[in-house]
Each structure stands twice: as structure tokens, then as C-alpha cells.
């Protein structure tokens, strides 16, 4: 625990509403404690702005422990801030020092329009999910859970991919605005498991179609996504996505 506090300047994107012009504003924040989280620093700033009668900076957050995928800041050009494998809410002020100017921007991509300040609309992800990110089973009609054994390695692989928190940092980081890592994570999670097999071919075709329809770009395998991903979802899932897609389009195993 540290008691020495310091001051920083946050240069933050302000935008009143969707489609409106935005600009950067500089705000000094004093009394920063190194143990503060980045979002707590923004809380402090917002309370100060409120008391000055300035509208506080809107930013998305909820769980503040790196699991809900709501927080979505680009800090000094890096989605989710300077560290690997953590979300914005798990960035702490001890990564900064007195006098730093910290530039905070929203996740940017055409399918993620800015709603206000640092808040973006990521409902495109829900649409991709609705296009096929599920296993069609009816409540109550499930077979006994242990009737289909799943090899541990397979379950682990599925879990590695299933950890995606749907934050969209992969898109924010990708020079092509591609959501391939997110999509690959879904495809890998469901496609690895025996339960996901019947719809596997159909699922990948439909989800890719939706991905494109939402306006995400194509992957050129630059790898920025995996580096920015708070769950460090590996590039393998994109490989899997491509393979499943190739298979689905050439193998004629489409069920629908």
C-alpha cells in the first residue's frame, strides 16, 4: 500500500452523442494514488467535473474485475491499456508517474459507433451470436450429462476459447477492424465439443455472413487482436475458424 499521491493529465475523447463531432479535452487529476485502478481515477475525475458543473466523462464499466467485458478504453493507443492479458478495469495507476499525459479514446471501428464519450455500441457482437452462436437444444430435452464423455484435452481447448469476455478489444486493435478473434473463439468453443457437431458447418457459414454484414473487416493475420485480448485468446481460434469455413463451404456438410 502506498500513500504517495501524484498528478496526471487525462486527454480524453468527448463526444456528445452518436454521429456527432468529437474532440479531445485535457483534464488534470490530482491526488492519484498508485493503488487506484484506472477506472477509479476516472471516477475521481468525474466527481470533480460534476462539482464544477461539467458533465462527467461517460465510460462503460460494470464488474471491475475483468470478466464482464464492459470496460473498453484505448489508453495511449492500446486497447485495455499498457498491460497484456488484462481488461481496462484491471489497469492500475501505479503504471503511471507524476506529470504523465494519458490519452484515452473509445474503441474504434465502424461497427462499434460511439454512443457518448468513451462508450461504444457493441451490439454487433450480439447479432453475430444470434446468427448461430448456440447449440439448438430445447429446455428439458437434454440427455444425461455424462452420457457423452468429452476428453479432457477437448474440454480444455473449448474452455480456452470460451473464456472470451466479448469486450471487442480485438476489433479495436485490429488494423482491419476484423472481429475474427471473437468469432473464432465462438467457433472453436462450440466446434470442439461433441455437442456442437450437428450444427457446426451451418454455424460457421452463418456467423461469418453476419460478421461481414455488420461491417467488420477481413483478417490479415497481423496478430494485434490476441495481444490486446484480456483473455489472451490464441490466434489458433482464427485458424480453426478458417478451417471450419473452408470445410463447410467445400465439404458440402451443410445441414441447412
Amino acid at each position: 500500500m502506498s500513500t504517495k499521491t501524484f498528478s496526471v493529465t487525462v486527454r480524453v475523447w468527448r463526444q456528445a452523442g452518436p454521429g456527432q463531432p468529437g474532440a479531445f479535452a485535457d483534464y488534470p487529476v490530482a491526488g492519484v494514488n498508485p493503488d487506484m485502478s484506472f477506472l477509479e481515477m476516472l471516477d475521481v475525475l468525474n466527481d470533480e467535473l460534476t462539482m464544477k458543473g461539467i458533465e462527467p466523462v461517460a465510460f462503460a464499466h460494470d464488474c471491475r474485475e475483468g470478466i464482464c467485458g464492459t470496460c473498453s478504453l484505448v489508453i495511449d493507443g492500446k486497447p485495455h491499456g499498457p498491460h497484456h492479458g488484462v481488461a481496462s478495469c484491471q489497469t492500475y495507476m501505479r503504471s503511471y508517474k507524476d506529470g504523465d499525459v494519458i490519452v484515452v479514446e473509445p474503441f474504434r471501428a465502424r461497427p462499434f459507433p460511439v454512443v457518448k464519450d468513451l462508450v461504444t455500441d457493441r451490439s454487433a457482437f450480439d447479432k453475430i451470436q444470434q446468427a448461430g452462436g448456440f447449440i439448438s437444444i430445447r429446455t428439458g430435452s437434454a440427455p444425461e450429462a455424462n452420457s457423452v464423455p468429452v476428453p479432457k484435452e477437448v474440454a480444455d481447448l473449448a474452455m480456452d476459447a470460451a473464456q472470451c469476455i466479448g469486450c471487442g478489444a480485438c476489433v479495436a486493435a485490429c488494423p482491419n477492424g476484423s472481429a475474427s478473434l471473437f468469432l473464432g473463439a465462438k467457433i472453436t468453443h462450440l466446434g470442439e465439443l461433441p455437442q456442437g457437431q450437428p450444427e457446426r458447418a451451418d454455424r460457421v457459414v452463418r456467423m461469418v455472413e453476419q460478421h461481414d454484414a455488420e461491417g467488420f473487416g477481413g483478417c490479415t493475420n497481423t496478430g494485434a487482436c490476441t495481444v490486446s485480448c484480456p483473455k489472451e485468446i490464441p490466434l489458433d481460434v482464427i485458424s480453426q475458424l478458417n478451417r471450419d469455413y473452408l470445410h463447410a463451404t467445400t465439404g458440402g456438410r451443410r445441414s441447412g
Binding site: V74, G77, P79, V103, R108, R110, V114, A173, G177, V227
Partner: peptide
């Protein structure tokens, strides 16, 4: 897909 507004701090991540 990248949209019209570029990042102020531009980085090639990795």
C-alpha cells in the same frame, strides 16, 4: 471497417 475517426495515438500492436 476501421471507421472515419482514427486513433489519436496510433500504434501497430505487435
Amino acid at each position: 471497417a476501421r471507421g472515419s475517426e482514427p486513433y489519436r495515438v496510433k500504434r501497430w500492436i505487435d
